[in-house]
């Protein structure tokens, strides 16, 4: 495993931990999109179907368990925890996320590397992950004033995607057996581009040491 891949996984892990920290210690999920969290839980559930059938490494299995466990506990907190769920911005978080799921499933049925259940589900998770952040970005845009932890959460997620792209470029040149993976690459690139606008405002706010505020 190369340094970019590891750094990508670590920023991904940190993003989830920042979110859980916010929810667990402040007992608030204000500014967090439940729609995006539901999509991520679905992404992990669909992608990690091989968790008990195919062994890659201890690292791989442990990380998969962490991502599955954390995404479903975030859902539990936001839907069931009696204090946390009251801070959920339900009226602002109105993105029709179900309309993302169906096109991704259709696309996975049409464009995949192998027409098997596991492979189609894996491809579906790749497509869905590319757009899963949209409800969160729309919610940030609506709230405009973004608190520090929510800003850091989205920033870390974007950093994870950016590092994965560098990891693919590195693997392409460094590993002789590594072939082209258009489905993952194009989806990953699209996903990273979705963060570009947010990144611009986030970095400016850090540089000027002011609270992150998105334009209307």
């Amino acid at each position: 495993m190369n340094i970019f891949r590891l750094a990508g996984d670590m920023t991904h892990l940190m993003s989830v931990l920042v979110l859980l920290l916010k929810i667990h210690t402040i007992k608030s999920c204000a500014g967090i999109s439940l729609k995006t969290q539901e999509l991520y839980a679905l992404v992990f559930a669909a992608r990690y179907l091989d968790i008990f059938t195919h062994y890659y490494s201890l690292y791989n299995t442990v990380m998969k368990l962490i991502f599955l466990g954390s995404s479903f506990s975030i859902l539990w907190y936001m839907k069931r925890h009696k204090v946390v769920r009251r801070s959920y911005d339900k009226d602002q978080d109105t993105f029709r996320h179900h309309f993302l799921v169906l096109p991704c499933l259709v696309l996975a049925l049409l464009i995949n590397e192998k027409f098997t259940f596991k492979e189609v589900m894996w491809t579906f998770s790749i497509y869905l992950e590319a757009v899963a952040i949209l409800p969160q970005l729309v919610l940030l845009q609506r709230t405009r004033n973004v608190d520090n932890l929510t800003g850091q959460y989205v920033f870390l997620l974007g950093a994870y995607r950016g590092l994965y792209i560098i990891n693919w470029i590195y693997r392409y040149f460094a590993e002789p057996t590594y072939s082209t993976h258009w489905i993952t690459w194009i989806s990953g690139l699209l996903q990273t581009l979705l963060y570009a606008d947010f990144f611009y405002y986030y970095i400016n706010s850090v540089k000027n040491n002011v609270r992150l505020q998105l334009p209307a």
Binding site: R5, H54, Y56, M63, T184
Partner: peptide, 10 residues
Amino acid sequence: HDGTKLKDEL
């Protein structure tokens, strides 16, 4: 090429 090759990533 094995379609499951990239699955070592998360």
